[in-house]
Structure formats: C-alpha cells, structure tokens
Design a protein around this nucleic acid. Structure first.
Lengths: 166, 166
DNA sequence: AGTAACTATTTACTGAGTATATAGATACCG
DNA sequence: CGGTATCTATATACTCAGTAAATAGTTACT
C-alpha cells in the first residue's frame, strides 16, 4: 500500500522514470526496504491507468517519464491525511500464540525465547543504525528508528510478561 | 501468511470442512478478524496442492473434509517455532511521515493529531474488550489485548515526541 | 580484453485478500 | 401460511502486492 503512494510522492517532486523511482524510494528509506524492480513498473502501470500519473513522453535516453496529475496530487494528500488503520490483531506473533494455545503446543517457552532473541538483535541493529543516522544528520530517519525501538521495547516488555504468566 | 497456518492448526485438531474452518478461525480470534469465505477455499486448495492436508472424502452432508498430513504437521511446528521477522520499516505511518517530509508537506501537525486520535479510539476499544475477555475468562485473548495496548501506548508516546520536535 | 556491477525495463508468476454468485436450510414474524 | 432475512456452504473471477528471472546496454575494475 505505501509503495504506490511513495512513488506518487517522488513523482510529485519532479518528473521521473521507473528506475529513478526504484533508486529514489530506496534512498528515501536508506536502503532498508529494497524494492523489486518489477513492482515499480507494474505499479506505474496501475497509477497511469487510474490517471494519477501521466507520461509527457521519453527523455533523451529513451526512458519513459511520468508526471503527477491533479487527481494524483489529491490522492497523495488524502493518503497523507488519513490515519493508518492498524489491524490490531493481525500481528503474526499474536496469531501464532493463539494457535499454539489452541493445539496445546508445549514449546511456548521456546517460542517466546526465540522471539525475544530476534527482538534483541533488532534492537541492537537499530541502535547502531540510529547512531549512523545521527552522525549523517538524517533526523527524520533517526526519529523513525526511535519509533521502531519503542515498539520493540514494548514487545520485549510484553514477552517478559507472558513468559512469567506461563 | 498467518491464515494459512491457522487453518492448519485447526485441521490438526480434528478433520474439518471449509465452512467450519471459517467459523473456527473467527471464533479463535473472537470475531476480531472476519475471514472472507473465498480465501478459505483457495487456501485449502493450496494446502492440498502442497500436500500439507489431504481429504479423506466427504461427510454425510456432502462437505469435503480435510485432515493434516505429516508434512503439514511439520510445517505447523516449524512455523510455530520460527520467530516472526518484523520488517521494522514497513509500518505505514513511518513511510507516510517520510513522504510528508520529502514533499515538504505542511500539515504534519494534522497528520499526527489524526493519528493520535485513532490510536486513542483503539485504546478505548481494546480496554473495553479486555474487560470483556476478563469477564468471560478468555485469558489468552486478554494477554494478546494487553500486548496490543502496549504497542498503542508506545505509538502514542512516540507521536507525542515527534509532535514536540516539529 | 574480459568480467563484474550498474542502469533500465519487461514479463510471467504466486499468494493474500475481495467481491460476488449460487443454493439449500433454518428462523422469525406478521 | 407465506415471505423474507439470516445462516450454512462452496465456487469462481478478480485485483493488488510482491517475487523471480530474462534481457540488454553501459560503465568500472583489474
């Protein structure tokens, strides 16, 4: 869902071609979300079909350029404005935990320990990344990382809780 | 991803037919995740194709039954055991925030306020739900709700932080 | 000179999820 | 009793996000 609108945001900035959108997106997220090239082009097809972008033609190097339309701008603004609908229970670990309870799985302790381990790794990874962002002056990304860290800490806290209650 | 394995867990318990899986899944998640009927049958087709389930035939009411195979059990165990890979940055609000910064969107304050509002609503909703689960003695679900609440609180905290730093 | 990496696009495919059509059974309600 | 709404039950066509892989020209390295 967000790739489509991110591409729209990049095209809003200036006319762009497919490959430029791929690299643009990836640098926007500091390489943390590598994009499959195919997805860019099919998404562009859909955006064009829905009249959110249109092509003023190709550039000197024969790359198809895209510009954003009025409808595209409106789509972008409304996406930015509408709050994201979190689907509170679709978190995979919750479902796993429910299923484990259901089949009276006796390895819940291991499940939780494994999960805690990966979260710890993630925390270390993000802490390091935050430092990098701090040094390179990327304040927005630093903020996002701090958000992700708060999430992970909440996860840890919860896992410790349920571990006790087992 | 979790629907497939949840169905597997339900079939593990005992042989079941499609509709029973739909209702079984929904009652597993206390109706919080309504399942499209079509998804059940197509998922069953894929599970059968991959030899994770097989059909011993139809019941008296001509409903196709499914049982889990050895491969299916192994798939279920390994799913339960492997920790979920959180894709730290694919959280839609983060991407939105990045895009908003990128296009120098001047309504970030509104974005954040709207997001906080929906989170507050979710917190109220879940708090109420937790009470229900508490009364009906559904302790597992109560735990999950508490996990979701911790997440929401982390989100709130973060939104307040970035609001200040704006 | 050769090969590895980068730029650039296309196409076929899978899997999750939605929408909708169908149809028999049961429940309710005046 | 008749009608309608709801529940049980399955099937099918479709969209969209994302993956994999093929192709081909250019640049960089060694």
């Amino acid at each position: 869902m967000s790739v489509k609108h991110s591409l729209l945001a990049l095209i809003y900035e200036k006319p762009r071609h497919g490959y430029e959108l791929k690299t643009g997106f990836e640098s926007l997220v500091e390489g943390l979300w590598p994009l499959n090239a195919g997805q860019v082009y099919t998404t562009l097809d859909r955006l064009e079909r829905d009249s959110f972008v249109e092509s003023p033609g190709h550039d000197k190097k024969d790359r198809k350029l895209y510009t954003i339309t009025q409808a595209g701008k409106e789509e972008l603004w409304s996406w930015l404005n509408e709050p994201v609908g979190r689907s509170l229970f679709k978190e995979e670990f919750y479902i796993k935990f429910l299923c484990a309870s259901h089949v009276s799985y006796d390895n819940k302790k291991t499940m939780i320990r494994n999960q805690k381990e990966t979260i710890l790794k993630d925390i270390l990874h993000l802490t390091q990344l935050r430092k990098q962002m701090s040094l390179s002056g990327n304040d927005t990304m630093k903020l996002l990382i701090e958000g992700a860290l708060l999430h992970l800490e909440a996860d840890m806290k919860w896992l410790e809780r349920i571990e006790e209650e087992l």
